[in-house]
């Protein structure tokens, strides 16, 4: 830090210029557009300030959209989270051949990035009315997935259940990727110390391993929640935009004012941003906790 005084004094004056392009881009293509939405969300159609748009979020359509979105994200986060965790545990601690471990990690990297239109199509070709699995079930077991009784109801891929099924395809590989480092961080000595003190395998998991992993597990699931909450393309392709979840309501709102109030659309969008911000915040806090534990 101690340098000759002349350059040291001159440098602070101009050095911030180095980050100007970055800031300009972020402002132009992120901050400004969001700013327009924020301002719009606090205005009525005449441009007068109001909170009415936010109050209107509790009316039926927006409220249902939020409820559905949260439900979809929660279910896929929990199922994808638990299943992804089990896979990561199986691959890392289950003494499977090394090649399987690296294959699973690589595939998870690809699968968590393989979302949107092709993913939705792939599921149509699998369990759609003409899908491979649908046909196999009919030919081999005589069970018609779409026609016959399905757990007391009827099956449709273009429903919330269908969305859950498809979303899991990118949810649990993502879980594998983000939770794997935490499982790797479980030290062999912890298990040995627990066994040494008389703990059974169950007691080790109950009192040591799961509590140590809990912050990362919760954090990862929260990230999965956000991941599903913000996803639009998969649901759009699968349901042609007909299902009532927030991202699809917003995409319909962009094409034509389906809410019959542009400003309500802005408030709907801001609600989404708010939820995502809370998600990231909680994730950060949990992450910090688990890092503090594992640092020693």
């Amino acid at each position: 830090m101690s340098q000759t005084s002349t350059p040291a004094r001159r440098r602070p004056t101009f050095s911030w210029l180095g980050v100007v392009p970055f800031l300009l881009f972020t402002i132009a293509f992120l901050i400004l557009p969001i700013f327009f939405l924020v301002v719009g969300s606090f205005q009525d159609s005449q441009g007068n300030p109001t909170l009415q748009n936010y109050l209107d979020l509790t009316t039926e359509q927006p409220a249902t959209a939020y409820k559905n979105s949260i439900q979809l994200s929660l279910i896929t986060a929990v199922i994808g989270g638990i299943f992804g965790f089990l896979i990561a545990v199986a691959v890392i601690l289950g003494r499977l051949p090394r090649a399987i471990r690296s294959a699973v990690m690589t595939f998870s990297g690809v699968a968590s990035n393989f979302a949107g239109v092709p993913l939705a199509l792939a599921f149509v070709f699998t369990v759609g009315q003409l899908g491979l699995v649908t046909k196999l079930l009919a030919d081999v077991f005589g069970y018609h997935l779409w026609r016959d009784d399905f757990f007391g109801g009827s099956f449709s891929l273009y429903s919330m259940l269908g969305l859950v099924l498809v979303y899991l395809y990118f949810q649990f590989p993502l879980m594998v990727l983000i939770v794997a480092p935490a499982i790797d961080g479980l030290r062999k000595e912890w298990r040995e110390a627990a066994e040494n003190m008389g703990a059974s395998s169950f007691q080790y998991w109950r009192h040591v391993a799961l509590p140590i992993l809990l912050p990362s597990l919760l954090g990862s699931m929260i990230l999965l929640f956000g991941n599903a909450f913000g996803a639009q393309a998969t649901a759009y392709q699968l349901t042609s935009g007909t299902i009532n979840i927030v991202p699809l309501v917003i995409s319909a709102q962009i094409r034509g004012d389906v809410l019959h109030n542009p400003n309500l659309g802005y408030a709907l969008a801001m609600g989404m941003v708010l939820i995502m911000a809370v998600v990231i915040l909680i994730y950060g806090l949990l992450q910090r906790r688990s890092e503090r534990w594992l640092r020693a």
Partner: peptide, 28 residues
């Protein structure tokens, strides 16, 4: 400036693409 820049690079996670394109179309 590091925490600030890191915060800025976190923003795209908070703003889903559907919201971003909504804002972009309304602005531009």
């Amino acid at each position: 400036l590091r925490p600030f820049i890191e915060f800025m690079t976190l923003l795209p996670f908070v703003v889903p693409p559907i919201i971003l394109v909504f804002g972009l179309i309304r602005s531009y």
